[in-house]
């Protein structure tokens, strides 16, 4: 492992032009570094710019100002090392489950037979082996999300961007998938940026938890989660240090959530 950080945002700012023509700043002067093999969770009030930050790292969007680097190289377009689990449903409705998971390897020129084998392997791991012939509209929301996970993981990304990937899952599946994600991550040594609204999840999974300010997003505070690994989500919750961290992060985040809420109320009035 070298010292080059996997992800490096320096002074990144993103402005969008709203339909009325005004400029809306979604991310402002954001500095964030993710080391290789590090797991970073990002929490922040709704609408503050978390998803936007991920699109900057993925190369789907360019920063208006500042710089985004992946493995030391400035991001120009989409990097094949990056995997992105989107917040919204993004599986292809006209492809079957199997064909959806095969899409990534096929797009990257892997022969059909090998792509199918890898896709089947991943469908098994997310518990959807029996559903490979279904179309997405025949699945539940949670199942579709698992298809999306398999679709991303099958490409073996070394940088994994996850935007509230488990928010559509039931509590049990969520714990299961979290443990599985940890296992997987430990095996691959990939760097993860994991956006979530669930502090339990953030602390249980991450090496560091980044709290963002009310929009436009910038880093407010970073908490280092000094809980020993390997962890399992259920066990780590009971440690005193976990509870302590939870309280600290909750206080820091709560303030920003309140600001966001007051702003929303002010605008509505």
């Amino acid at each position: 492992m070298t010292d080059t950080p996997a992800i490096e945002l320096t002074g990144a700012t993103k402005r969008f032009r709203t339909p009325s023509g005004a400029l809306h700043t979604a991310v402002r002067d954001l500095d964030l570094t993710v080391a290789q093999g590090e797991f970073v969770a990002v929490v922040g009030p709704t609408g503050c710019g978390k998803s936007t930050t991920l699109t900057l790292v993925s190369g789907l969007e360019e920063p208006t100002e500042g710089e985004v680097r992946v493995y030391g190289e400035p991001v120009r377009g989409i990097d094949p090392k990056v995997g992105f689990v989107f917040q919204q449903d993004a599986v292809f409705p006209w492809r079957t489950v199997l064909s959806n998971v095969m899409a990534g390897p096929r797009f990257r020129g892997v022969p059909t037979a090998e792509a199918r084998e890898r896709a089947r392997d991943w469908l098994g791991r997310v518990g959807l082996a029996a559903f490979e012939d279904r179309y997405p509209h025949q699945l539940s929301g949670g199942m579709r999300k698992r298809v999306a996970l398999a679709q991303t993981f099958v490409n073996d990304p070394s940088i994994l961007l996850m935007d509230e990937p488990f928010s559509a899952l039931d509590v049990q599946t969520r714990a299961l998938m979290s443990d599985q994600l940890l296992e997987l991550w430990a095996g691959t040594g990939s760097s993860v940026v994991f956006v979530t609204h669930d502090l339990d999840e953030a602390i249980a999974l991450a090496d560091r938890v980044v709290v963002m300010t009310a929009g436009p997003a910038t880093v407010k505070e970073v908490f280092t989660v000094d809980l020993p690994r390997p962890r399992t989500v259920e066990a780590v919750r009971l440690e005193p240090r976990f509870v302590e961290l939870y309280r600290e992060i909750w206080a820091s985040l709560g303030e920003e959530v309140r600001i966001t809420r007051e702003r929303g109320a002010g605008r509505a009035a």
Binding site: L60, A90, F92, T152
Partner: peptide, 29 residues
């Protein structure tokens, strides 16, 4: 075409030609 689908295809490794053939055309059918 749903922007999310295009974004997903591009992240998964589709070039412009593949996005057109495998995302835009099926979505437009």
């Amino acid at each position: 075409v749903d922007r999310n689908l295009v974004a997903n295809a591009r992240i998964l490794g589709a070039d412009n030609r593949r996005v057109t053939l495998q995302v835009v055309i099926p979505a437009a059918t």
